[in-house]
C-alpha cells in the first residue's frame, strides 16, 4: 500500500479515532484527579490508579459486549464500524490496565520486591499480572498480520479474554478495598450476568449446533460468576462486620 492509501485507510477507519479517544481519556482522568487532589500527591496517585483500573474493566466490557449484541440485534446501526472497533477497545483496556498496574506498583507499593510482600498482596498482584499478560498478549497480536500468521491460534489466544475478565474481577475483589462496596459489587456482578446471558443467547441462536467446548466454556464462566459473587459479598459482609464492631 502506498503512503497515501495507507493514510486514507486509517483516516477512513474507526480505530484511529478510538486511539485518539484513549489518549484524550487518559489525559482527562489525569487532569480530573490532578485538579481534585492538587494538594495531596498520595491521594492523587491512589485515585488515579483506581480510576485507570475501573476504566480498563469498562473498556473490556465494551469489547466483550459488541459481538453478542450485534448477533442478537442485527438491525442495530453501525455493525461493521463497531466490529472493527473491538480490537482497539481491547487495546484501550490493555493500555488502561498497564497504567493502573504501573501507578499502583510504583506509588502504592513503592516498587517493593513482590517476593518480600505478604501473601495477601502477592496473591492480588499475581492475579493482576496474569490478567494484564492476557490483555497485553491480545493487544500485541491485534493486527491483521498477526491474525494471518497465527491462523487458528489467534482465535484461541483471543478467547482468553473471558479468562482475563474473570481474573481481573477476582484481582479487583481480592486487593481493591473499594471493589467490595455495594455500588462496585452490583455494577460488576450485574454487568457480568448481563454479558453471560448475552453469550448464552448467542450460543442458543447460532445456526450450527452448540459444541461441547462452548457448553463447557459457558458453564465455567457461569460458575466463575457465582463463585466471584459469593466471594465479593463475603468480603463485603466481612468488612461491614468489622466496621460495625
Amino acid at each position: 500500500m502506498s503512503m497515501r492509501s495507507t493514510a486514507r485507510h486509517w483516516l477512513g477507519g474507526i480505530r484511529l479515532y478510538i486511539a485518539a479517544g484513549i489518549i484524550l481519556l487518559t489525559y482527562q482522568l489525569w487532569q480530573w484527579n490532578a485538579i481534585t487532589y492538587k494538594d495531596n500527591s498520595e491521594l492523587l496517585a491512589s485515585h488515579l490508579h483506581e480510576s485507570f483500573g475501573w476504566v480498563a474493566l469498562m473498556w473490556l466490557t465494551a469489547a466483550l459486549a459488541i459481538g453478542p449484541a450485534y448477533r442478537l440485534f442485527p438491525k442495530l446501526p453501525g455493525k461493521l464500524v463497531m466490529r472493527d472497533a473491538r480490537r482497539m477497545l481491547g487495546i484501550g483496556a490493555a493500555w488502561f490496565a498497564s497504567l493502573h498496574a504501573g501507578v499502583a506498583y510504583i506509588v502504592s507499593f513503592q516498587a517493593a520486591n513482590p517476593l518480600s510482600l505478604a501473601t495477601y498482596y502477592q496473591k492480588g498482584m499475581l492475579l493482576g499480572a496474569i490478567a494484564l499478560i492476557i490483555l497485553l498478549s491480545m493487544a500485541f497480536t491485534s493486527f491483521d498480520g498477526a491474525m494471518r500468521t497465527m491462523g487458528p491460534w489467534w482465535f484461541k489466544l483471543h478467547r482468553l479474554i473471558y479468562a482475563g475478565a474473570v481474573i481481573a474481577i477476582w484481582h479487583a475483589m481480592s486487593i481493591g478495598v473499594h471493589a467490595t462496596g455495594i455500588p462496585a459489587l452490583v455494577s460488576v456482578i450485574g454487568t457480568s450476568i448481563v454479558l453471560f446471558v448475552l453469550h448464552i443467547q448467542v450460543a442458543l441462536r447460532q445456526e450450527k449446533p452448540i459444541t461441547e467446548m462452548q457448553v463447557l466454556a459457558l458453564c465455567l464462566v457461569g460458575i466463575a460468576i457465582i463463585v466471584l459473587s459469593n466471594y465479593g459479598f463475603q468480603l463485603h459482609l466481612d468488612q461491614y462486620a468489622r466496621g460495625a464492631r
Partner: peptide
C-alpha cells in the same frame, strides 16, 4: 447493562487512598 456500566463509572469516583 448500560446503566450498570455508567454506575460503575460513577462509583470509581468514590474510591480512596491506601498506602502500604
Amino acid at each position: 447493562a448500560t446503566v450498570v456500566l455508567l454506575t460503575a463509572g460513577w462509583s470509581s469516583d468514590t474510591v480512596s487512598a491506601h498506602i502500604l
